[in-house]
């Protein structure tokens, strides 16, 4: 056995270690990348469909449409995919692959904002992607509006919110509360507030622009409020004119 205390041994060991671990990681990452990207693609489609109410929810639980048929369902319900860039709107059938986080970092003129128009039971849904920050890490989601700016459904997800607290933003009882809220007060954008002390746990007042906060997850809740208000606002001028 070599003398493990020698400097030369230490250096050689470190170099070999870095090479082995590095190539192992690079190999796993690159060989699995296509499968992972495909999974992420399907998930995005599922999220968009979920927001417009195309899902297989059972009592109290949020369930997506099945992965193997999501592509077909997506094509059936989503009739337009648009990209808004510097006031210009173009159609693009891969708009749903746009990473909103990256776009929000760009300058206003360079941003490509994706917007989806879905149709279900002869009704149009405008689905807007959202991105923001929770307590620990990123939160994101989709919000579906009808032509009167009434929320038809939302989907939230998060990277690392506290399980049992902030992570509950993707629970149905939280997401369902958003349905029916209005984001506009006449012509003024008001957004939706996740409010503590709303005293309305059953969400009986649908149109007050407030939903009941999650206990113990104040910062995540504020993050959701900020996320909705900041991203949806970007779309308002365009939605106004898209209305048929």
């Amino acid at each position: 056995m070599a003398n493990t205390e020698k400097n030369s041994y230490t250096v050689i060991f470190a170099v070999v270690m870095v090479l082995v671990v590095g190539s192992l990681l690079a190999f796993t990452a690159s060989s699995l990348k296509p499968t992972i990207t495909k999974n992420e693609k399907f998930e995005k489609q599922q999220n968009i469909l979920y927001a417009m109410g195309v899902n297989e929810n059972v009592e109290g639980e949020a369930i997506f449409v099945p992965t193997d048929s999501v592509q077909a369902i997506f094509n059936k319900y989503i009739k337009e995919q648009l990209i808004i860039q510097n006031g210009k709107i173009t159609k693009d059938s891969s708009a749903y692959l746009i990473d909103l986080k990256g776009q929000l970092k760009k300058d206003m003129e360079d941003r490509e904002l994706p917007l989806f128009i879905g149709e279900k039971d002869k009704k149009d849904y405008y689905i807007i992607p959202m991105y923001g920050k929770g307590l620990w890490d990123a939160i994101w989601g989709f919000i579906a509006l009808d032509e009167n700016y009434v929320v038809q459904g939302v989907y939230f997800d998060h990277k690392g919110e506290t399980p049992g607290l902030g992570a509950n933003i993707k629970q149905r009882y939280f997401m369902d509360d958003f349905t029916g809220e209005e984001i506009m007060n006449d012509t003024k954008f008001t957004g939706i507030t996740v409010a503590k002390g709303n005293n309305d746990p059953l969400n009986e007042r649908k149109d007050d622009g407030k939903v009941d906060a999650l206990a113990g997850a104040t910062i995540t809740g504020n993050g959701v409020t900020a996320m909705i208000n900041s991203t949806v606002k970007l779309y308002i001028p365009y939605l106004k004119d898209l209305k048929i």
Partner: peptide, 26 residues
């Protein structure tokens, strides 16, 4: 028996991190 004691902490951390990342990717 082959980990040099001077850099053992970094080796341990890298082993666990690599393990977790690979499992996560799979």
């Amino acid at each position: 028996n082959i980990i040099p004691s001077k850099i053992r902490i970094i080796v341990q951390l890298i082993v666990v991190a690599a393990l977790v990342i690979i499992v996560d990717q799979v």
